[in-house]
Write a protein that binds this DNA or RNA. Structure first.
Ligand code: ZN
Ligand code: ZN
Ligand code: ZN
Ligand code: ZN
Lengths: 143, 143
DNA sequence: CTGGGAATGTTATATTGTAACATCGAGATG
DNA sequence: CATCTCGATGTTACAATATAACATTCCCAG
């Protein structure tokens, strides 16, 4: 399967002294294999196919780890999780979420980042991270 | 109490043919009276002081109405609700959320709006609304 | 007044997320 | 190798958020 993904994640974790265990890797692969974001309980259903005893805490603990490592993002407005398209340095995600087909595109736009930085500064606010979720209709669905 | 608020909301709703009922106005006033965003069940607790029979659906229905009318915003990352500081035309909210004191400031920054518009356009995406929640430390707490 | 649609009451349940504590297991230490 | 230790996992129960479904009431147009 996604050996490429797994190896890259493994490398990143190793470099940080973090342990990408079998369970955590399973959750990462489940999330990464999905075209759409998955809810925690959808991940749980998938995980149970290889590990029938899994419980909610199992999934949430793995997700906590993967979020810390910047390997997945959480979509606040969908209560769901999606792989990061360019892990490496953890970063705030910016997403285009299609209401029609449910697809989500992760973008990385420095101009958005800059404008947010300036707005925060203008209010004397020290930003530490951001939730940027843009909802609408994707190119494919707009036709 | 906040007669000013209530009157303005009343005027806006009347102009649109929307009915700001007693219940809906109660919920609006509860939300507006709070310095911090309130969760639906916090609103419910408050509402029950004047209407002991209120149930979750009561609150969620009122919130749906107030959200549609642009009188309150939902904070996705906090699962909570806050009054709009400048109702009139419904608009996407932009928020600075302090992790330390819990205060939330609503801002309206055209530069953020523009950068998001351009990024969406660049992906052929028709944006219809946005979730912009900037988390960090407010001026007061930063000192 | 009366009919009809919107608003509310009421009950039950779905969905998402955590707490708490027992147990396991990989790697360090001697 | 033995054993110690701490992070990871197993397990159970529960908290917090949100919605479904259907009965009833209320407001207003006609
Ligand atoms: Zn990313
Ligand atoms: Zn689409
Ligand atoms: Zn607003
Ligand atoms: Zn603060």
């Amino acid at each position: 399967m996604s050996t490429r993904l797994a190896r890259n994640a493994e490398r990143l974790c190793r470099a940080r002294g973090a342990r990408l265990t079998r369970q955590r890797r399973s959750v990462l692969e489940i999330v990464a294999a999905s075209k759409r974001p998955l809810g925690a309980y959808e991940i749980l259903d998938a995980l149970r196919r290889e590990q029938p005893g899994a419980a909610p805490a199992t999934v949430y603990r793995a997700l906590d780890f993967l979020l810390e490592q910047g390997l997945v993002h959480r979509l606040e407005s969908l209560h769901s999780y999606i792989r990061c398209v360019h892990p490496g340095e953890p970063h705030p995600g910016q997403f285009l979420i299609c209401r029609d087909c449910g697809l989500v595109e992760e973008i990385e736009d420095p101009a958005i980042q800059r404008s947010i930085g300036r707005a925060a500064e203008h209010s004397g606010f020290q930003a530490s991270d951001e939730v940027i979720e843009i909802r609408g209709r994707c190119r494919g669905c707009a036709r």
